[in-house]
């Protein structure tokens, strides 16, 4: 028994020493907690309290009663939303715009990056980069203004060209058929250049010796792109694809809101703009919060599913 005593006391000592060390660290660095305090308060007030407030999706929110005091109504708002006549239109528009955007907008930066990567650093290459990055910094309001001005059936330059070619002017902004295309291709114009940066940085990691060896073996440029460069950027592509798919129900809603008008609404009415309208214009807070929550849940499920599939098939995943 006596022989066992020392080890026990020794074992007990470790946590005590650790606690002491930890306390010393906390006391010594107390000012660091002041450093982080404003940000912690910010996250509590503007992120965690709204998270707590999401309960109004299951309640009838009355401003005077607050988040907690309002009465529970269960899934009433969700049921009302699912049974509404616009439910399937919203889903169809939301998914339609996102899938279209992904199909066109995802491959283009990859292609542009692969092409840019073939050109040696030169004034020409830098010009292409400087110019194609620039639209990224134009505000969404100006972008919307440009779209509306350029596509006007009477005064827009695009329709001037269309008429020059002998066709009838196209009412892009008032014909619902055109809405998705206008949205997607204006996005391509604005973000393709900027989207190349992340791929160019991945491509700069390719070992030059691999290319040298391939050249000696007689591989053409195209072959080297296909068998060296593209495999190098596949992990980056996978990560971005997962993130895009996880965001498929939450697209650039600020631009849609600006481009939306009564005539194209049958195509431009998406979940996010509907939440804005129902919640902030019509003050149906609980109903709008419920729709927002539904959208967020679908997004989360998509993200988890896609990440899971990616993990299983390619060994690249977000977590």
């Amino acid at each position: 028994m006596k022989q066992q005593a020392p080890p026990i006391s020794h074992v007990q000592d470790i946590p005590r020493v650790r606690t002491k060390k930890k306390n010393r660290k906390i006391i010594q660095n107390w000012q660091l907690y002041l450093f982080i305090l404003p940000t912690v308060l910010y996250f509590i007030i503007f992120k965690y309290i709204p998270m707590y407030g999401i309960q109004i999706a299951f309640k009838d929110y009355v401003p005077s009663l607050g988040f907690a005091g309002s009465e529970w109504v269960g899934f009433d708002h969700f049921i009302r939303f699912f049974n509404s006549y616009y439910f399937w239109d919203l889903i169809k528009n939301t998914l339609g715009i996102s899938v279209y955007e992904l199909a066109v907008g995802f491959p283009l930066p990859i292609i542009l990056a692969l092409l840019l990567n073939e050109v040696k650093d030169s004034a020409y290459k830098r010009t292409v980069q400087t110019v194609t990055y620039a639209p990224h910094f134009i505000s969404v309001v100006v972008i919307a203004g440009m779209i509306i001005a350029f596509l006007s059936p009477t005064t827009g330059i695009i329709n001037s060209f269309i008429q020059l070619l002998g066709f009838e002017p196209i009412p892009f902004m008032s014909d619902p058929k055109w809405f998705k295309t206008v949205y997607v291709f204006s996005g391509v114009w604005q973000s393709t250049g900027w989207g190349t940066i992340i791929y160019l940085s991945a491509l700069s990691g390719v070992d030059p010796q691999q290319h040298e060896a391939a050249i000696i073996d007689g591989a053409t440029r195209l072959q080297r792109i296909l068998y060296i460069n593209i495999p190098t950027i596949i992990p980056t592509m996978t990560i971005l694809l997962i993130m895009n798919l996880g965001n498929i129900m939450a697209m650039g809603f600020e631009k849609i809101l600006l481009l939306q008008n009564p005539l194209n609404k049958s195509a431009s009415n998406v979940i996010a703009t509907f939440v804005y309208e129902a919640g902030l214009l019509d003050a149906q807070y609980s109903f709008a919060a419920a729709i927002g929550l539904f959208n967020a849940v679908i997004n989360a499920i998509l993200l988890i599913t896609v990440n899971h599939i990616a993990k299983k098939t390619s060994e690249t995943s977000l977590w």
Partner: peptide, 21 residues
């Protein structure tokens, strides 16, 4: 603290509750 901040990237109160706050 990092976890507390990063978590908000995945879970979010959304437009309406944030507006009400």
């Amino acid at each position: 603290f990092t976890l507390m901040f990063v978590l908000t990237m995945f879970i979010d109160g959304g437009l309406i509750p944030t507006y009400l706050v």
